[in-house]
Amino acid sequence: MNVLEVKQLSKKFGDFIAVDNITMSVKEGEIFGFLGANGAGKSTAINMIASLLRVTKGEIEVLGKNIAKHSKFAKMNIGIVPQEMAIYEDMTAYENVRFFAGLYGLRGAELKERVIEALAFVGLGDKHKSYPKNFSGGMKRRLNIACAIAHRPKLLIMDEPTVGIDPQSRNYILGSVKKLNELGCTIIYTSHYMEEVEEICTRIAIIDHGKIIAEGTKGQLKAIITNQKNISIEVRSAENLNKSKLEAIAGVNRVEVEDRIVKVTSDSEINNLNRIIQQLMADDLEIRAVEENEPSLETVFLTLTGRSLRDQ
């Protein structure tokens, strides 16, 4: 079953169309990435899914149930990590998580257990009694996540959960996201950091001016632009190169030699780097450096939307 099903969803603010007729679905177990510039409509779409905004047109189904008709069911099964920190600074970390988890109907011993579990999960197990005002940015971000997961949502929506924090905290958060996913939580993830999305997302939608302009796995998105990758191998001397054998390797389209650099153009979908290197080693060429150039998601984004994600 699809955890999330969005059909022809639109949102108007007056005359302005923030989300324009988008249709998409997220399957169970996916980490679904939303890529888009500021104001592209990501947050609006997410907020409609999380029942924070009214839907102008279209339908949203969570776990097969329409959220307009089964609002409580949908809300029980969704957790949201808002872009901005949404915690009470005058309450301890423990109290914050307990308060929000309590709103989901958790009580007594179970509530306590879940709160402890959530805090431990984000690495704040030893900070129960601390106040968030004394936290670093990364710790606040982690608390922000803990508040969203204590009720064990089936679908977790994370809106820029790593903005403005140190690399260590970011790695921790990315690790937690993967771990949550392995535990069976389906995740919708938005980020400005292309490499994060590239690293953790199983499927990605590029959204621009309220429309989904491309959707698919990383490979599928990259294949929009080209299905070729360039492998440059620097060797000590290319004299002994057996060009025809190299060209015979599956996927390899062209082999060029420039001075001491062997340039191989190959289908990007086929992983043949090992075989190419083995062939070169069999020819007794001393390999100095190998560089593989695939179009990055950044390139895809730039090509499709005409702007970089970062230059906001």
Binding site: K72, K75, M76, I78, I80, A86, I87, Y88, L103, G105
Partner: peptide, 13 residues
């Protein structure tokens, strides 16, 4: 202002 309104609204309350 504290954005906690988002969480309150997203919860089944």
């Amino acid at each position: 202002k504290r954005n906690t309104a988002v969480r309150l609204l997203a919860s089944p309350v």
